[in-house]
Write a protein that binds this DNA or RNA. Sequence first.
RNA 1: GGCGGCGUAGCUCAGUUGGUCAGAGCAUGCGGCUCAUAUCCGCAGAGUCGGGGGUUCGAAUCCCUCCGCCGCCA
Length: 648
Amino acid sequence: MEEKVEKTFYVTTPIYYVNDIPHIGHAYTTIIADALARYQRLKGKKVFFLTGTDEHGQKIEKTATEKGITPKELADRVVIRFKELWQRLNITYDYFIRTTEKFHEEGVQKIFQKLLEKGDIYKGTYQGWYCVSEENFLSEDVPLQPEGYKICPDCGRKAVLLEEESYFFRLSAYQKPLLDFYEANPQFVRPQTRMNEVVSFVRQGLKDLSITRTTVKWGIPVPGDPKHTIYVWFDALHNYVTGVGYDWNTELFQTFWPADVHLIGKDILRFHAIFWPAFLMAAGLPLPRTVYGHGWWLKDEAKMSKSKGNVLDPYLILEKVGPDPLRYFLLREIPIGQDGSFSHEGFVHRINSDLANDLGNLVQRTLTMVVNYFNGSLQEIGQEKEEDKKLARLFEETRDRVYALYDDYAINRALEEIWTYLNAVNKYLAECEPWKLAKIPETRPRLARILYQAVCAVRASSYLIYPVMPETAEKIWAFLGEQKKPGEVLTSELNFYDFRPDQKINRPEALFPRIDLKEFIGEMEKPKTEDYKASKLEAKMEYISYDEFKKMDLRVAKVLTAERVPGTNKLLKLQIDLGSEQRQIIAGVADSYAPEELVGKEFIVIANLKPAVIRGIESQGMLLAAEIEGKAIIPFFDREIPPGTKVK
RNA sequence: GGCGGCGUAGCUCAGUUGGUCAGAGCAUGCGGCUCAUAUCCGCAGAGUCGGGGGUUCGAAUCCCUCCGCCGCCA
């Protein structure tokens, strides 16, 4: 076990659900994993970096059916997109696991069987709220309506209470072991606040977990009882063991398991920090060292969602700036664990000042001087002075701090340290003023020494940057005429003075051209990727005639009063002013708007809609709103309009 | 409602066990340099450390209370 600590490193991302196309959130987790993996490789560890896709489940089956393809075909398509993105981002995963792979399915079945025999899985009856239209049990955390039923979050319809035979995992038995484990391993969940949440959740008591469904066909069959399929989390979580050889490659498995860190989004914390270790305890397998829950990237303070249309497309950014600036920004801007805000302004600013000005320009000015003053080859290097030694010493101190921070997954802090050093190198040049010495022939040895120190500093600090910006580090080393790539040099082999003066330095190209903000924003607003467009076109279009449209009497209405309809979560009762008359309408917008928020607002209603009785209350019309994930968004006007005004 | 966290310069945040802890970066202003991607270097700003009370020789740092955010749970 101790040997494992010394020699190997196993990092995972979640397996991504193939019902979604890759976005910046996927990229973020995977980039973190890649930087950690690359760093550990530099340290000489054997690294296993696992990512992949989660391909089972009702939703996949449904989407596939809608597209007229099989679930596997759907998965195949999406997998290609993920792999393409990882390639563009220079992600060095060791294996890409798919939950539809045979060895995974068999591994999961084997563990299932094992726990069944052990008694940690037993057959029982699952009682849950079932949505007939979605053909799906609602998740446990859907709240009960005051009337005593639940509403399907996907379609908004009333769900019915249903019982079915199901297998259960005896999670309740693991409350104490889990709490003991957390106490003994305070670093198991990071950051600390997430650990607090987990502990308090477990303290409240754990219920056994239903882990099979008879209503879902697209899943791994329960061994010996194939009308049941294994429910999503029990299936998906085990990728972390099947992906490193559990049950099919003992050597691989023993080399790398347990994982050093599972990187996850904070939304799936409970599964990874509670269910997963419980499953492993039951199976008698060692537990991972750390589950790290990272934060969300917000787009200008707002949560990104497909429906808001504010999801950042990693491809667009990549097209414009390439992988390294994106990797750098995401890793530098925030500590893992915090939410971050991605704005175009912030991104451009960070790239221009950190990458173009600080790093890019330092490399440029240093190498250009070597080329201009020495034709690319430093000769007659003068004696080392105190300030020269200082630059080397400072690097060593920086390096040690950077390694310690990388070891602690504090990538943003590590980058901060590196940049502090880059500033010091810039300062060194400013103080030594080599451009002045270049005019005096007698000081050539001194000039050579100064540039030698600066080149060494550039070489060494770009090595530290390599885990985050591999392409950039490689470019810099290529400028320097290094035979090796930074990724081929171990941390133990890197020394400040390893730059050999006889190496011929090439005239550099700008590493990071400055980005023009306006132009950048313009490019980012370009149409999204094909899938996005395609999905819009896929919506079937049925035409109506103008006459049919004319039948609708659309009017501007002003809200006079608004109140919740008792006993509902979504409905508001609104009294509205239609100019010539007042009316009462019932609107399903309470999810998005508080009653008081609407008073005084104006929006469009269909005034000649046949009145209907909703919840025993008459509704004389209907307001127009966009529906996004079950929530209504009302289009308001940008100026005040007399109530009753016709809209066409 | 319960548990946890947060509120420090315009902005984003550091501040171990209370005593150079009032800081960094960005933004702003001024000055310097010209090798370099109009880049780089230096200097300056001053904020009652959310409000109030308390413990202490001494608190941003401990205790109480109030206000305002956020997370998890119900």
